[in-house]
Amino acid sequence: MNLKTEPNGKVMVVMVREERLDAHNSNELKVEMNRLFESGTRDLLVDLKEVRFIDSSGLGVLVSGFKNASTHQGSIKLCGLQTQVKSMFELTRLHRVFDIFQTIDEALESY
């Protein structure tokens, strides 16, 4: 899976550079988020702007990250959701769980 992780101020930004986030590749995002929280990251922003398709496994990995953030007294926010990805969040009501922003800049301003 193509992930790019870089800090922006106190926020760690993970860019998911894949068209799909599904049962085949989503565990790699879970491992990366776990690694970041275990190594002291508090605030994580996941940029999904290149993701056109997300399945239940991809959604589950983000929920796992949400719970992991809570365990570490941190936070996880999302940005760049394409229309279909956003509709899956709405179908599963996860749009009520996550703080979701249109752009990375809007998300960074929220901290």
């Binding site: 399945d55 589950g60 929920v63 796992s64 949400f66 719970k67 599963t92 009501r93 769980v97």
Partner: peptide, 18 residues
């Protein structure tokens, strides 16, 4: 029914049925 939002699994059949 829509699974608990904080469950990590169990959304697949719900999505198909939806």
């Amino acid at each position: 029914n829509c699974p608990d939002p904080l469950e990590e699994q169990g959304r697949g059949i719900y999505i198909i049925r939806s």
